[in-house]
């Protein structure tokens, strides 16, 4: 029986083995250093990206891939599909959803198609994508998958403590980071992404108070179904946080993700955070 196929983009941070297992097509985004352009995860590894981020004076920029790349990915997904759902970050953060829809038009397919805003990035988007792919594999139709997405959007939280405001300020995507905060003194902003909104959940000055903050906020989310720890080139911080979480009654973190360069470009290195999925009530 044909099923709905799930496509997303490389901001989702889904590791390759999981993508393969759930038959998820991932479209790579562009990372540019000056005039050099790389495809996220294709010809630019995370290690290489963070090495360049730390050493090159020129800051990277990011770009959605052209519609043609999306069209190619959709064509690969079409055989055996009863329809396609394409999941992407919120529109106010990126043009990916729009470009994806343009790519679909190029395929000329008449199958049912939805380009949807998952309201999340990184493994927030990744977790939602995997859940939808799992349900699709079990035979869920377009309507019930859209319902599932609406439900998951209300249960997935992403929170991260950045090591500086500077990258966020440069990226210009977040209003509250445009002010003067962090210009004279080191501050670590805590950001919380929920249902498409990036909120400033406060500031701390030290890594240990940032860690405590993450732990407390995680603990306040109630019963969890899943937990992923995120970082941008700071694996040692993940270890610290995991140790702090041990006494709490939380699910074992399934993954430690060194977040996508697309995210890394906008938040800088040294960020630490989590994606938490609240249990369905």
């Amino acid at each position: 029986m044909n099923s709905i196929h799930i496509v997303t983009d490389s901001t989702c941070d889904i590791p390759p083995d999981l993508a393969e297992r759930w038959n998820i097509q991932i479209v790579p985004c562009y990372v540019n250093f000056g005039t050099q352009s790389f495809l996220d995860g294709v010809n630019l590894s995370r290690e290489e990206f963070y090495r360049r981020l730390a050493t090159q004076a020129e800051q990277p920029t990011t770009a959605a891939p052209p519609p043609g790349i999306f069209a190619d990915a959709y064509r690969l997904a079409l055989p055996g599909a009863s329809g396609v759902i394409s999941l992407h970050p919120p529109d106010h953060l990126s043009a990916l959803r729009q470009v994806a829809a343009n790519g679909w038009e190029l395929t000329g397919s008449t199958l049912p198609y939805r380009a949807l805003d998952a309201g999340q990035i990184s493994m927030g988007l990744g977790w939602i994508t995997i859940e939808l792919a799992r349900a699709a594999a079990a035979g869920a139709d377009m309507h019930s998958l859209e319902n599932l997405l609406a439900q998951l959007r209300r249960r997935v939280h992403l929170e991260a403590a950045l090591s500086t405001v500077e990258y966020l300020r440069r990226s210009g995507r977040v209003g509250w980071a445009r002010g003067a905060i962090g210009r004279l003194l080191r501050v670590r902003p805590i950001l919380h992404i929920y249902q498409g909104e990036i909120q400033n959940a406060g500031f701390t000055r030290t890594q240990s108070s940032a860690n405590q903050r993450l732990r407390d906020d995680l603990n306040n989310l109630g019963q969890l179904e899943g937990l992923v720890l995120l970082h941008t080139d700071a694996a040692e911080l993940v270890g610290q946080l995991q140790t702090m979480l041990e006494p709490l009654n939380l699910p074992e973190p399934t993954l430690h993700i060194n977040a996508t360069p697309i995210l890394g470009s906008h938040v800088g290195p040294g960020a630490l955070g989590f994606v938490a999925i609240q249990a369905a009530s």
Binding site: G179, A180, I181, G182, R183, L184, L185, V187
Partner: peptide
């Protein structure tokens, strides 16, 4: 004073 202004 500048530091305080930078902190809101």
């Amino acid at each position: 004073a500048q530091v305080f202004l930078s902190l809101g």
